[in-house]
Design a protein around this nucleic acid. Sequence first.
DNA 1: CAAAATTAAATTGCGCGCAATATGATTTTG
DNA 2: CAAAATCATATTGCGCGCAATTTAATTTTG
Lengths: 163, 163
Amino acid sequence: MVDKRDEAETGAIPPGMLALDQQLCFAVYSAAHALNRTYKPLLDPYGLTYPQYIALMTLWQEDGRTVKALGATLGLDSGTLSPLLKRLEAAGYITRARDKADERQVLVTLTDKGRAMQHDAVAIRTEIGKATGCTLEALQALTADLQAMTERLEAGAARDDAA
Amino acid sequence: MVDKRDEAETGAIPPGMLALDQQLCFAVYSAAHALNRTYKPLLDPYGLTYPQYIALMTLWQEDGRTVKALGATLGLDSGTLSPLLKRLEAAGYITRARDKADERQVLVTLTDKGRAMQHDAVAIRTEIGKATGCTLEALQALTADLQAMTERLEAGAARDDAA
DNA sequence: CAAAATTAAATTGCGCGCAATATGATTTTG
DNA sequence: CAAAATCATATTGCGCGCAATTTAATTTTG
């Protein structure tokens, strides 16, 4: 029997499962947009965008981080984070201050409003959970699979950078 | 035993599965970016962005579609597609022309270059498939799960619009 | 058949996301 | 210790993605 990897590598993709990897890419692409759209009406009342909300989430896990540290967690650079954090500060969710010990770094700290948002997030989480229509087990499995794939993709990117 | 949903709704989320839905959202968010970054070096030589490539993909499946039809498949509106298609046209991958039968519509058609790109895509697919590190079966399962979730999210959005 | 309603694209404005560059601060090192 | 290299953040420019508006064509309807 012919190995399916061989088929993929020769381009002889059997019709019916044509370009399955393309379907995956499109599926991730669509899922990200769908999630974004589901969050939007829930976050609009708070004047938050989805990426801003995700940034808050990471601060709830560990407050007082540098822009660099936040970026490492989020996979974003200062080009994206600097203006985003400025808006979060303008909206009163965080404060930004240069680190006295190392003036290069900017420490991002939650305000009372930023911490309070954590409680409102419970209702949002509930809504999102309902909207996905997934059981906890399914959510868990899907999350684990995606995380594993993302890790492999990032490892590959790191390897390419080294080369 | 306490229902896990209750815990989520009271905010008493057991550590270890803290905010699983948030983790899913972040996992999808990260996976989308990781895929985007994996595609980038593969598409750069063609002067294509990832969304442009996805648009081409849908045209390979069915050529000569209207902007509206493309948007329905991609989940994008003319606000996103109009400039994107302009760039695809400028790059020589497609042509755009008003439908003679209904001048409101614009028909998007692949050029020879646009069709030829389909063959180069085979190598790109192979690379992406390798980078994900997934077996065909895993890819298939992950894709199906994501599609199912996306459908439920979109159905929910449609229901909210009606209300 | 003409006015009103609907439809398809395009445009505008704003917020990501990323590459490239600039600006200061800190470390290295010669 | 001073010049060079490194580092953290900010800025700029471009391409999405989306809401809101505009423009032009078609369909509805009165």
